[in-house]
Amino acid sequence: MRFAADRLAVGITKAASLADDLVRRFEEQIETGTMPPGARFPTEMAIVEAFGVSRPVVREAFARLSARGLLVSRRGSGAFVANGARYRAFQVTADEISEIDDVIKLLEMRMGFETEMAFLAAQRRTGSELQEMRRSLADMDASTEVDGSVAADTAFHAAIARATQNDYYLRFTDFLGVRLVPSRRVYLQDSDAATHQTYARAINADHRAIYAAIETGDAQAAREAARAHIQKSIARYRPHALVA
Score class of each variant (00 low, 15 high):
residue 74 R to H: 13
residue 47 I to G: 01
residue 57 V to T: 14
residue 63 A to Q: 11
residue 57 V to D: 02
residue 10 V to Q: 13
residue 54 S to D: 08
residue 113 F to L: 15
residue 54 S to W: 05
residue 86 R to C: 02
residue 86 R to K: 08
residue 126 T to N: 14
residue 102 D to H: 12
residue 104 I to T: 03
residue 29 Q to M: 14
residue 136 S to G: 05
residue 100 I to C: 07
residue 63 A to S: 14
residue 81 V to A: 02
residue 78 G to Y: 04
residue 59 R to I: 15
residue 114 E to W: 12
residue 28 E to L: 15
residue 113 F to Q: 08
residue 43 T to S: 15
residue 121 A to Y: 03
residue 77 S to D: 13
residue 40 R to E: 11
residue 126 T to V: 13
residue 39 A to V: 06
residue 41 F to E: 01
residue 143 S to I: 00
residue 26 F to E: 01
residue 68 R to L: 13
residue 99 E to L: 13
residue 80 F to I: 12
residue 37 P to I: 11
residue 40 R to N: 04
residue 73 S to N: 13
residue 8 L to A: 08
residue 110 R to G: 00
residue 36 P to D: 03
residue 41 F to C: 03
residue 71 L to V: 13
residue 77 S to V: 13
residue 63 A to C: 02
residue 39 A to R: 04
residue 97 I to S: 01
residue 93 T to P: 00
residue 48 V to D: 00
residue 98 S to Y: 05
residue 85 A to K: 01
residue 32 T to W: 03
residue 112 G to N: 07
residue 80 F to S: 07
residue 97 I to H: 00
residue 22 L to S: 05
residue 66 S to H: 07
residue 118 A to V: 09
residue 53 V to I: 12
residue 56 P to H: 06
residue 109 M to K: 07
residue 91 Q to E: 13
residue 88 R to C: 01
residue 102 D to M: 14
residue 142 A to S: 12
residue 135 R to H: 05
residue 75 R to C: 02
residue 65 L to P: 00
residue 80 F to M: 10
residue 20 D to N: 12
residue 62 F to W: 09
residue 140 M to P: 00
residue 37 P to Q: 06
residue 25 R to G: 09
residue 82 A to D: 02
residue 21 D to E: 12
residue 139 D to E: 13
residue 100 I to K: 01
residue 98 S to H: 08
residue 37 P to G: 09
residue 66 S to A: 14
residue 73 S to E: 12
residue 115 T to A: 14
residue 80 F to Y: 12
residue 44 E to K: 10
residue 39 A to Y: 03
residue 85 A to G: 03
residue 64 R to N: 03
residue 12 I to T: 08
residue 121 A to T: 04
residue 19 A to F: 12
residue 32 T to I: 08
residue 57 V to I: 11
residue 19 A to D: 02
residue 98 S to R: 10
residue 13 T to S: 15
residue 38 G to M: 09
residue 71 L to E: 01
